[in-house]
């Protein structure tokens, strides 16, 4: 199972308490994980990726095994530690605002 950690506001919106666990068919990429996530929780459509262009929203980042995969890595195969659930895929909101 793929583990996904969402920002607090999206956990509230999706009505999930902590991490989300998803069964994602191969190939396992950020795009396929988000497709599965949005399919399971349709209220998240448009909140992580633009609903029309599919682009990552600018104030969000994707962290993978202590690396920033936010730029151009949507279709890159995720590492084994993510695929086997050892490490979570982290969707992080920028620390900003009032």
């Amino acid at each position: 199972m793929i583990r996904v950690i969402l920002p607090a506001h999206l956990r509230t919106l999706a009505r999930v308490g902590g991490e989300v666990s998803l069964a994602v068919p191969a190939p396992i990429t950020i795009r396929s994980v988000l497709d599965e996530l949005e399919g399971r929780y349709p209220m998240l459509l448009g909140t992580i990726r633009d609903g029309v262009t599919g682009e990552r929203r600018p104030f969000l980042r994707f962290f993978v095994c202590s690396e920033d995969w936010s730029h151009g890595a949507e279709d890159r195969a995720l590492p084994a530690a993510i695929c086997d659930g050892t490490e979570p895929l982290i969707v992080l909101g920028a620390i900003a605002g009032g």
């Binding site: 920002p7 999206l10 909140t47 992580i48 609903g51 929203r57 104030f59």
Partner: peptide, 8 residues
């Protein structure tokens, strides 16, 4: 709405 997460 939110600057981070768009429109709901």
């Amino acid at each position: 709405s939110s600057g981070w997460f768009g429109q709901i």
